[in-house]
C-alpha cells in the first residue's frame, strides 16, 4: 500500500488560472520522492494539498483526493493526520514560536495529549536525531539559522510521523546542517517512513528513489 498518494488532483486559487491539473503521484513506505519544478509551478501548493493544509487552512478549488495509507485524507480527523504526516517548511523562523527548544518540541506531543513521560522520551529522541541534545534548554532566539531548522525538524519528528513532507527545507541550510538533515532522512527511510520533498538542487538527488517534475500544472516522473 502506498503511504501517500494523490489521485487526479486539480487545483486553482479562486478564479485564477489552474495551477495543478489532474496530478497523480505516490510515495511508498521507506521511499524518498523528490518533486522538482520551476518557481511558481505549484510545488508548495502540492505540498500543502498532500499535507492537508489545503483545504483545511487555505481555500481554493480542489478536485481529486489524497490517500494516506489508503484512507482519504479528508475523512480523517486533524489528530489522525498529524500523527501520520509531518511537514517541514522553508523558513525556520516562522516555525518556532516558543522561548526554548524544549518548549518547542513539547508543543506537538502536548497537542496529542500524550502523557508527560512519553513527551520527555520523544523530546530526547528527536533532539538526538538532529544531534542537538545539548541544546535542550537553550533559547531558540540564540540559535543559528541551520540550528533553528534542525530544531524545527526535531519538532516534527517528535510527533513520529510515518510520512514526512519537506517544502524546500534544505534551501537555506549551511553545509554542516545539510549533512545532518540528510542523515536524519536516511535513517527515517530505513525505519520505513515515506518522504516527499520539494527540492531543486542536484545535490539532493542522492537521497531519492524517484523524482517527479511539475511544470505547467502537469506532473511527470523523470528518470534518475
Amino acid at each position: 500500500m502506498n503511504a501517500l498518494e494523490g489521485r487526479q488532483i486539480s487545483f486553482s486559487y479562486g478564479r485564477g488560472k489552474t495551477l495543478l491539473s489532474q496530478v497523480d503521484f505516490y510515495v511508498q513506505p521507506g521511499e524518498c520522492v523528490i518533486l522538482q519544478g520551476p518557481s511558481g509551478s505549484g510545488k508548495t501548493t502540492l505540498c500543502h494539498i498532500a499535507g492537508g493544509i489545503i483545504p483545511r487552512s487555505f481555500s481554493g478549488d480542489l478536485e481529486g483526493e489524497v490517500l494516506l495509507f489508503g484512507t482519504p485524507l479528508h475523512s480523517l480527523s486533524l489528530a489522525d493526520v498529524v500523527k501520520n504526516v509531518g511537514i517541514l517548511f522553508q523558513n525556520p523562523d516562522s516555525q518556532l514560536f516558543f522561548p526554548t527548544v524544549e518548549d518547542e518540541l513539547a508543543f506537538g506531543p502536548e497537542n496529542l495529549c500524550l502523557p508527560r513521560e512519553e513527551i520527555a522520551l520523544r523530546i530526547a529522541e528527536a533532539l538526538d536525531a538532529v544531534e542537538m541534545s545539548s541544546f535542550r534548554l537553550v533559547e531558540t532566539d540564540t540559535l543559528s539559522h541551520g540550528q533553528k531548522q534542525r530544531i524545527a525538524l526535531a519538532a516534527v519528528l517528535a510527533l513520529r510521523p510515518r510520512v514526512l513532507i519537506l517544502d524546500e527545507a534544505f534551501s537555506q541550510l549551511d553545509t554542516a546542517s545539510t549533512a545532518i538533515v540528510k542523515g536524519v532522512l536516511r535513517r527515517q527511510k530505513e525505519l520505513g517512513q515515506a518522504i516527499f520533498m520539494v527540492e531543486n538542487g542536484e545535490e539532493h538527488l542522492e537521497l531519492a528513489e524517484r523524482v517527479y517534475e511539475l511544470q505547467g500544472g502537469q506532473i511527470r516522473e523523470v528518470a534518475l
Partner: peptide, 9 residues
Amino acid sequence: DEPTVGLDK
C-alpha cells in the same frame, strides 16, 4: 547584514 541567510544557491 547576513545577506546570504534565507537565500537559495
